[in-house]
Amino acid sequence: MSLIQVKDLYKIYQMGNTEVRALDGVSVSIDQNEYVSIMGPSGSGKSTLMNLLGCLDTPTSGEFFMDGINVATMGDDELAHIRNKKIGFVFQTFNLLPKSTSLRNVELPLIYNGEIKAHERRDMAIKALTRVNLGDRVSHKPNELSGGQRQRVAVARALVNNPAIILADEPTGNLDSKTGEEIMSLFDELHKQGNTIILVTHEEHIAAHASRVVRLLDGKIAVDEATEKGKK
């Protein structure tokens, strides 16, 4: 069975008298160690799909299995546990805690895990920071780091709990192109190491890093195909 199995997913918002179908029957499955980018113009439902795939939201109807677990009908706290253990987020605006050190930021998912001892947490966080080449920035706060470094801290935070998927939402959107490329090569590296990566973007050259691209339009999947890289 696929790592992510989505079938007939609907997300419908009621705005006054009008019904907005943000997702209008989406079916997609993503396998272990796939590298998928999700594209689409604004309003196409890609943010909604990302929120659903990230277990931040629940669908109006449809099936959603993650790692064999039915996520579609879960409550808030169960979803929080899934997010904590199965998903690593990387956001466009980094979303680090501004007053905490890199170490503390990376440790945070492990704290909410609730079963890892403090010294183990520290070791795991340092290891994750070393993986993104920030082993020497452990006690720096976000405002003492460059944009690229901040995003790498965020990647380390996404990696630290060894998630089933890494979900990156426009990870290069706030970076210059050179730093953006650095981050993307970091993702390429992580993919080679066996991680499953889902990338939400509207930039073709970023999407090209993935081996498969899913294009959304008006809440439906318009295209689901292998990229040039994927065809090789």
Partner: peptide, 16 residues
């Protein structure tokens, strides 16, 4: 609010 959002995204429950 933003901090709470970040914490929730990375797995904080209501009780946390």
């Amino acid at each position: 609010i933003k901090e709470i959002g970040i914490r929730k995204a990375i797995g904080a429950t209501r009780n946390n």
